[in-house]
Design a protein around this nucleic acid. Sequence first.
DNA 1: GACCAATAGTAGGAAGTCCTACTATCTTGT
DNA 2: ACAAGATAGTAGGACTTCCTACTATTGGTC
Lengths: 201, 201
Amino acid sequence: MTALAAASLAGSAVAETPAAQTTAAAKSAVPLTETPALPFDPVAEAARQWRARGWIEAVDGMAAVTSLMRAHQIVLSAVDVVLRPMGLTFARFEVLTLLSFTRTGALPLSKLGARLQVHPTSVTNAVDRLAADGLVRRERHPSDRRAVLARITGEGRVLAARATQALNAEVFSGPAGLDSAQCRELVAAIAALRRGAGDFS
Amino acid sequence: MTALAAASLAGSAVAETPAAQTTAAAKSAVPLTETPALPFDPVAEAARQWRARGWIEAVDGMAAVTSLMRAHQIVLSAVDVVLRPMGLTFARFEVLTLLSFTRTGALPLSKLGARLQVHPTSVTNAVDRLAADGLVRRERHPSDRRAVLARITGEGRVLAARATQALNAEVFSGPAGLDSAQCRELVAAIAALRRGAGDFS
DNA sequence: GACCAATAGTAGGAAGTCCTACTATCTTGT
DNA sequence: ACAAGATAGTAGGACTTCCTACTATTGGTC
């Protein structure tokens, strides 16, 4: 779910807007679910509803949260389109890439979770699947018998390189038509949020 | 998974940074998974790695996508903390709120999906659970026998009002410490992305 | 040196998302 | 009028995320 769009325009005709579709098609190959493009911005509509009810101090926050939900959905879809043919998901791609960046090619699961900021069970899950595909190997930690190391395999390195190259070309060079400046604005705005949430320093 | 943080700092000490924690605590009650706050920004680290490898044109896009993933995780957690005690999730909250905004209190599932921009199966799922809790009722569409209407119940309206009030107070009034201006910047940056993806006009 | 708290990881389960069919029903064009 | 195609919704499956235990270790404290 993504946008608290108001239903007051329920009876309005839905325009086709083929222009928007072509814009999207120019970037990512095939929209996973081709939502037919609403004739209005659902987030702006939701904000209007909030304002109409006098929830003024919550309008901007609501719009920010709702926008974030939809943005996540959009970029994740775009990424998945590229990675699925390689048998990867973004979660597993991140693990693989992070491992490929390390000097030794291995990290304890706990470190993986800390760097990627996900729950321990998510790491276990991702590593399990990567291991099942032969892209990483589980190893004992040399000095801590509680810990498990995930080590990237040669096959894993090859796939990581291919995946990175594909993502760089097809998604990261202008996600959904954003230029570099817009990307940087987005990153800056989100960095404030992440820092506020206690993510880093 | 969220941040392609580099592992080259694997040996560095992890500072506690209680300041960041207090900031977060001031907003949302309890972080679901209290990640211990990295001593550096993992997104910035990933960007550094990208740059070091010469993937210049993809740096900003990668950072944007990675930031978005983590931001989604953060706000969803904050929202869930508030909604869980009421037996709601954000997905179901959105359905409920959208229905409460309609004149008649009912919408076909297809319209719900279009407004919230989610897959038809996600709508079915959400409405099923809401119906199981007595918050909406499924009805036949009067003129289209293929369609199903979801109608909000009295109980649903009460809960929607409570949930909205709680979210407005505890999350939407400055999510993760963002002020209104920062929220608006975020919304604007994401609006460009959503429009680029063909979401609306 | 023993005990107790913190840390690493896993198991099982609830939810959400999407995808690929597949059925039923409208709508449109000939 | 009727066949072809579009639309509405559901079933079943894959995947992710998180949560709540629960089991091993490790490490600090008295």
